[in-house]
Design a protein around this nucleic acid. Structure first.
Lengths: 189, 189
DNA sequence: GTAGTTGCCTAATGTGTTTAGGCAAATTGG
DNA sequence: CCAATTTGCCTAAACACATTAGGCAACTAC
């Protein structure tokens, strides 16, 4: 019986690729087994369950995304940093829609706390150092940025606003302009 | 054999309730059959497939949401209208998380075009009549509003920013203030 | 009341998840 | 270099959901 050399890592990576190809919720232990030309049961030595597999793919995506973000942010500040971070999310979602969807998987609190999710939160907050915002406005702004990035990327990817006239690249630029303007001129309570 | 009186309508409504209770992607033809104490196959006279059921739930949710939005918007303008519409989305998502998730289901273009989705787009645009925005900025703003509403609601519901200090109600208010300020003072290109 | 329609049923097939237990291949130690 | 052990992939089997085909009973209409 030829051994294929399965490992949790290879499975997760292949699962992520599969997600990008067919969509995250089409990722199934069976499909993954087919991809490795191996019987389904064999995967259960490496991965606890379907849920476990999906969670690991989510964690991988969060890591990759955080790494990209950290790279993009290095040496930038102000609007430059804002644009860089925003583009990391958007580009990642366009290049890796399945992975991006995976990154949205709801994790249980313990797993989330140990994930790269916390790096994301820190980086978003780091961007605001280039603007003049004290707490609690800083937290409000972090949440707003998160909402816009996530909301925009999701809608664009889902075809939410595909048909209308101005192309989405233009809207994206203007959205970043608007956010920058907003952060420089945050309204008093 | 006692007849239960199934109809597509009752199934869809029950499916929506089920979604609110256990989550939209736990909505299954089998679960619905159990809820009516009926054999699974019986549902297939009323609903074409699992996909069909989910699509119908999505359409129901979009309708309900659009109805609420239309009510809330009547007689309001400017920031008042902005706040009203935003609150409709947020409150609906909190009261009916499963339905809200359903409303995000990707529909094929034909179905989407015939759905209440178009009313949502029109209403968002209507809000901007209270602000001084010409095309193409109006479209950019529509997309931004959609992104923020959807992104915020999704993150809040998914526990995206639950732990940190300021409560989310406060952030929500300040987010609406910020959007209002932004629309009144939209940055030139 | 009978004819026809409709509604829910049984039966069967295919796919995905998961566990238990087996045999062969890799690895380790003498 | 071969024996002992670990490890990896397998077969087998149970269970859940989706879906289709075909049957019989219960409403509806005349």
């Amino acid at each position: 019986m030829a051994r294929v050399g399965l490992t949790a890592d290879r499975l997760v990576r292949a699962g992520a690729d599969l997600a990008d190809e067919v969509g995250f919720d089409q990722v199934t232990v069976s499909a993954l087994a087919r991809r490795f030309d191996v019987k389904v049961a064999s995967l259960y030595s490496h991965v606890r369950s379907s849920q476990d597999l999906k969670t690991r793919i989510a964690l991988l995506a969060l890591e990759e995304l955080a790494d990209r973000a950290a790279d993009a942010l290095a040496g930038r500040a102000g609007k430059d940093a804002l644009t860089a971070l925003a583009n990391v999310y958007r580009d990642y979602a366009r290049e890796h829609p399945g992975r991006y969807a995976a990154a949205q998987l709801r994790l249980d609190p313990a797993t989330a706390a140990a994930s790269a999710g916390v790096r994301h939160a820190r980086m978003t907050r780091a961007i605001l150092r280039g603007y003049d915002l004290a707490e609690p406005d800083q937290t409000h702004a972090v949440r707003l940025l998160g909402s816009v990035f996530h909301g925009y990327v999701t809608l664009e990817l889902g075809g939410g606003f595909s048909h209308s006239a101005p192309d989405t690249q233009e809207t994206w630029s203007r959205t970043l302009d608007a956010l920058d303007a907003l952060l420089r001129n945050w309204p008093a309570p």
